[in-house]
Computed example of a mutant assay.
Amino acid sequence: MTKPLTLGYSTCPNDTFLFHALAHARVDRRGLDFDIRLADVERLNQAAEGGELDVTKLSFAAVGHLRERYALLRSGAALGRGCGPLLISRPGFDPSRLGRVPIAVPGMRTTAAMLLGLYLSRTPACAPMTFDKIMPAVSRGEYEAGVIIHEGRFTFRNHGLAELVDLGRWWEDETGLPIPLGGIAVRRDLGPEVARRVEVAIRDSVAHAFAHPADSAEYIRAHAQEMADDVVRQHIALYVNDFTLDLGEEGVAAVAELFRRGHAAGLLPDSREPLLAGDVGVS
């Protein structure tokens, strides 16, 4: 290919860890060049809605809205157990008021916002903002509750906040499945051959990260400057696992169930497009 593929992923440690080898040509790129764009996941969700990215990390909720344009790759996902978003508030908040107050969320197309709607069995009143602003906003009393993601799981108590609901645990109890948070999507119009090469290159990058975890330390630190080293390690351990290498049958089932429930609740549109790029001829 002569034109580089635009590749979007977040600045979070799990993404910089798994994409480091691909970004720095430590693995075979399968004849592809990449124009890498790093951004907050909700910004990536929005960019994909505008068709700006060829390959990108997306919240699974965003994938559910964009299935006509994007197909899911098996490698690079954030999916697992004990890693879901948390619904938090200041101590003393009455949970019965959740349906009557605006709740801060890390973007309207995030899986976190969608899980909140599934938990409440209604479309909640949401106040979207970047994920790093949620805990300070709730701590200051600007919002009575918020849904936090990423390293917020490890730091919310530092802001004097309390956990109301672990939405990931709620999902696991409801479904018996791991919680699908975000995955890598590829534009369908690139065709199955390009999608296959991208998928293999990402899988090789994940495998390299597992085999050489220290290689990416400088890259991770460059994009996580305000995050303590122990939080970085916990973050990677929580969100990078065997599902990141390959979704497998259980991972695919979890994504399909999220989409089924989202559609049934009126939170996602229906789609007849195959979920996986591999279902249209990509192995």
Rank of each mutant, 00 (worst) to 15 (best):
residue 5 L to H: 13
residue 5 L to T: 11
residue 5 L to M: 06
residue 7 L to S: 08
residue 8 G to L: 07
residue 12 C to N: 15
residue 16 T to D: 04
residue 16 T to L: 09
residue 18 L to W: 09
residue 18 L to D: 07
residue 19 F to Q: 09
residue 20 H to R: 06
residue 23 A to N: 12
residue 23 A to E: 15
residue 24 H to G: 06
residue 27 V to C: 10
residue 28 D to V: 02
residue 30 R to K: 15
residue 32 L to E: 00
residue 37 R to T: 07
residue 38 L to P: 04
residue 40 D to W: 05
residue 42 E to P: 02
residue 45 N to I: 05
residue 47 A to M: 11
residue 50 G to Q: 11
residue 51 G to Y: 08
residue 52 E to I: 07
residue 52 E to M: 09
residue 55 V to R: 00
residue 55 V to Y: 02
residue 58 L to H: 10
residue 59 S to D: 02
residue 60 F to E: 15
residue 65 H to W: 07
residue 66 L to C: 09
residue 70 Y to G: 05
residue 74 R to Y: 04
residue 78 A to R: 13
residue 80 G to P: 06
residue 83 C to R: 05
residue 84 G to I: 12
residue 86 L to P: 00
residue 86 L to M: 12
residue 86 L to H: 10
residue 88 I to R: 11
residue 89 S to H: 10
residue 89 S to G: 10
residue 89 S to L: 12
residue 92 G to F: 00
residue 93 F to D: 12
residue 102 P to K: 00
residue 107 G to K: 00
residue 110 T to V: 06
residue 112 A to S: 11
residue 114 M to D: 07
residue 115 L to S: 10
residue 116 L to N: 03
residue 119 Y to F: 15
residue 121 S to Q: 14
residue 122 R to T: 04
residue 123 T to K: 00
residue 124 P to K: 14
residue 131 F to A: 15
residue 133 K to Q: 15
residue 133 K to R: 15
residue 134 I to L: 14
residue 135 M to Q: 14
residue 137 A to T: 12
residue 137 A to C: 08
residue 139 S to D: 10
residue 140 R to T: 04
residue 144 E to H: 08
residue 145 A to G: 00
residue 146 G to D: 09
residue 147 V to S: 00
residue 149 I to H: 13
residue 154 F to Y: 15
residue 156 F to H: 08
residue 156 F to E: 05
residue 160 G to I: 02
residue 161 L to N: 01
residue 162 A to R: 15
residue 163 E to I: 08
residue 167 L to C: 03
residue 168 G to N: 04
residue 169 R to V: 01
residue 174 E to W: 05
residue 175 T to R: 01
residue 177 L to H: 09
residue 177 L to I: 01
residue 178 P to T: 06
residue 178 P to I: 08
residue 180 P to N: 11
residue 180 P to F: 00
residue 184 I to R: 07
residue 186 V to N: 11
residue 189 D to M: 11
residue 189 D to G: 07
residue 190 L to V: 02
residue 196 R to S: 12
residue 197 R to Y: 12
residue 198 V to M: 01
residue 199 E to Q: 12
residue 200 V to W: 09
residue 201 A to Y: 11
residue 202 I to D: 00
residue 202 I to A: 03
residue 204 D to K: 03
residue 204 D to G: 09
residue 207 A to V: 13
residue 207 A to Y: 10
residue 208 H to Q: 13
residue 211 A to K: 13
residue 212 H to S: 07
residue 212 H to G: 00
residue 215 D to Y: 01
residue 215 D to S: 09
residue 220 I to H: 11
residue 220 I to C: 07
residue 221 R to S: 12
residue 222 A to F: 07
residue 223 H to C: 04
residue 224 A to V: 05
residue 224 A to I: 06
residue 225 Q to D: 05
residue 226 E to D: 08
residue 227 M to S: 05
residue 227 M to K: 14
residue 229 D to R: 15
residue 236 I to T: 11
residue 245 L to A: 05
residue 247 L to N: 08
residue 252 V to L: 14
residue 254 A to H: 02
residue 257 E to P: 02
residue 259 F to G: 08
residue 264 A to R: 15
residue 264 A to P: 01
residue 269 P to Q: 13
residue 276 L to N: 03
residue 276 L to H: 03
residue 278 G to F: 01
residue 279 D to I: 06
residue 280 V to L: 13
